[in-house]
C-alpha cells in the first residue's frame, strides 16, 4: 500500500533534548518488536549534552542498497528504503559502513541488519511513525509541508546533503535556518567542529523552540 503523499518527515536535530522517548517508542513498532531502530548519540559527552537522533533519511539513491552484496535492501515505489529482507541479508556490514548518515544497525546474533523503515506499517495507512508521534520537542516531526512552514517560520526544510564530492538527496527533510539561505548541507565541513550549544552565545534550541 503506498504511503499518503501529503505527509513528510522533518527532522530538526537542534531541538533534540535526548529524552529517549523515540528510542522507546520505536521498539514498540510492529515490524521490529522489541528492537529500536533510532540511533541516539551524545555528540561529545565530555563537553556538551547535545544529542543527535538519526532516523533513516530514505535516500533517493540509497548507498546501503547499492553496496549490498545480497540484494537485500529494497526501495519501495513511494521512496521508502526498507529494512533488509530477512531471507537475504547475510550480515556483511557493507550497508552499516557505507550509509553516509550512519543509520543501519547490525544484529549479529540474528545475522540481520535492521534499520528504520519509517514505520511502514503505520505510515502506509496514514498514521505517524512511532518516534514522531512521541517526540516532545518535535525534533522528529511528521506532517504536511504547510504545517511545518506555519510552525517553524524561521527555518525551512531541505533534503540535499553533500558528502565530499557526492550529493545525496533524501525523502526525509532536515530543518535549517532561513538565513543564510542554503539549499544543501555540506556535512564534511563539520569535520573538526565541536558541539555548538555550549559555545555560541544565543541558544539555538530555545531560539528555535519559541518563534517570535
Amino acid at each position: 500500500m503506498p504511503k499518503p503523499e501529503k505527509y513528510e518527515f522533518f527532522i530538526d536535530i537542534s531541538r533534540c533534548i535526548g529524552c529517549q522517548a523515540c528510542v522507546q517508542a520505536c521498539s514498540e513498532c510492529d515490524t521490529h518488536k522489541g528492537v529500536s531502530m533510532i540511533q541516539l548519540d551524545y555528540v561529545d559527552r565530555s563537553v556538551s549534552t547535545q544529542t543527535v537522533p538519526v532516523v533513516c533519511m530514505h535516500c533517493d539513491s540509497p548507498t546501503c542498497a547499492e553496496v549490498c552484496p545480497a540484494d537485500a535492501i529494497k526501495r519501495t515505489g513511494d521512496g521508502v528504503v526498507q529494512t533488509a529482507r530477512k531471507p537475504r541479508c547475510i550480515a556483511c556490514n557493507n550497508c552499516v559502513l557505507a550509509c553516509p548518515f550512519g543509520v543501519p544497525k547490525m544484529h549479529n546474533e540474528m545475522n540481520l541488519m535492521m534499520k528504520c523503515d519509517m514505520c511502514y506499517d503505520r505510515t502506509s495507512v496514514g498514521l505517524k511513525p512511532m518516534c514522531a508521534s512521541v517526540c516532545p520537542s518535535q525534533a522528529l516531526f511528521y506532517g504536511t509541508r504547510e504545517e511545518i512552514e506555519r510552525l517553524r517560520p524561521s527555518s525551512h526544510p531541505i533534503n540535499s546533503f553533500q558528502f565530499g564530492q557526492q550529493m545525496i538527496t533524501t525523502k526525509v527533510n532536515m530543518m535549517v535556518p532561513n538565513e543564510p539561505h542554503v539549499r544543501l548541507i555540506d556535512i564534511a565541513m563539520s569535520m573538526d567542529q565541536s558541539p555548538a550549544p555550549q559555545l555560541i552565545s544565543h541558544d539555538p534550541l530555545l531560539a528555535n523552540l519559541y518563534e517570535e
Binding site: D12, I13, S14, Q39, D41, V43, D44, Q50, V52, V54, C99, P100, F101, G102, M174, M175, V176, P177, P180, V182, I185, D186, I187, A188, M189, S190, M191, Q193, S194, P195, A196, P197, L199, I200, P204, A207, N208
Partner: peptide, 15 residues
Amino acid sequence: RRAMLALAQGQLWQR
C-alpha cells in the same frame, strides 16, 4: 557521521 550531521546543522544556526 551521525554526530557530523548534528554539527553541520548547528554550524548553520551559528552562522
